[in-house]
Design a protein around this nucleic acid. Structure first.
Lengths: 205, 205
DNA sequence: GTCTATATACGGATAGAC
DNA sequence: GTCTATCCGTATATAGAC
């Protein structure tokens, strides 16, 4: 839109966005300084405002893209009528753990900023319906009916088992004396384990 | 130390600390303003510096107290040689869920600020040893040995099942169309459920 | 101890040259 | 489009009166 159509996404605008994503996601809106972002992008501070007008506007873009990044690809898995709960859980766990290994700060960022702004665009993109009306949620409801519990419990449990270790990684790594690589290996193991655990949970007597 | 020994903790110093706890815990260090804290405490801004010298010093105190608040009372449960894994899990879940209902912002605060400052005083107080050398962790190790998995998985799972819903409450309440009271009721249900689930997890085949 | 007024620093944003 | 220099609001911190 600005210069040449696209190089390989190394236009100035893209460099700023990528730098903003890194800094905002690591530090959150309030702690991030536009000067940090400019430095990270290797450009001058004034350019940031030239391209994005304000810190807040830039943040909104990053926030939206981060939420997108978080839910992208989930839809097909959740909607698939041909897979059972265990297979869906396995696929979700595997995909999300891979994504979170690459973007470990993403969940804490989203959860923090969502809490700071509960009126956020949570449902500009229909996350609620994406989940609530999926084949996946129907299967959770079926399992929950047998156990006479609220299906939200199972939803929370699965999300918790996948996401929480990344949110708490500094604490986990401290307690377990783990290096970065050890932690990642542990997360890799969970890909298979989580589906097994969730199955055990919904069948627990 | 300053005025009379203690009234009922409504000395000015205590009022400021309590206000600081509320504001810091809700908004995090960077987004919190000393003016907010002064207003919340119903005192003048200058008094804050009179008592605590700086925002950062005040924050350090609150951070330490919050971590204390998070682990207080866990020690006896974790160390108890006379209870099994299921009973311990039940007690932990029950106590933590009660505490988190009263302090819902506590975990996200701790996890966020811990990530921002990984070199934090995580182990001024021996959290690591408190857990790693407890009867509880030994029982986790025994269970993990049977299943041939790292015992840290079980530790993460239990913590995740207890804490994560509070960290993600805005999202959960949105997806489930829950009001505050509904959410709390759901958390109350989990007190009994989590121990059952954890038992199912460590026995999953 | 508590207030008002103010100094000082920092961060977001813009003006204007190139 | 990109830079340097600068403005200006806001937030922390302090001086000094009471």
């Amino acid at each position: 839109m600005k210069k040449q159509k696209k190089e390989v996404d190394s236009t100035t605008e893209e460099k700023i966005k990528e730098a903003a994503r890194v800094v905002f996601t690591r530090k959150g809106y309030a702690a991030a300084r536009t000067r940090d972002i400019a430095e990270e992008a290797g450009i001058n501070l004034a350019l940031l405002n030239y391209y994005f007008r304000s810190k807040e506007k830039l943040f909104d873009i990053i926030m939206m893209e981060n939420i997108q990044r978080f839910i992208v690809g989930a839809k097909e898995i959740l909607a698939d009528e041909d897979t059972g709960l265990k297979e869906k859980t396995e696929k979700i766990a595997s995909r999300y753990i891979d994504m979170l290994i690459l973007n470990p700060d993403l969940p804490l960022f989203i959860l923090s900023e969502l809490r700071a702004n509960p009126d956020q665009l949570v449902d500009k993109m229909g996350v609620k319906n994406l989940i609530a009306k999926s084949s996946y949620f129907q299967q959770l409801k079926d399992a929950a009916k047998v156990q006479k519990v609220n299906p939200l419990h199972y939803f929370m449990n699965t999300l918790a088992l996948i996401v929480f270790p990344f949110v708490a990684s500094p604490m986990i790594m401290n307690i377990g004396n783990l290096k970065q690589a050890d932690f990642i290996a542990l997360m890799q193991e969970r890909k298979k384990l989580i589906a097994k655990w969730v199955e055990a949970i919904v069948k627990a007597k």
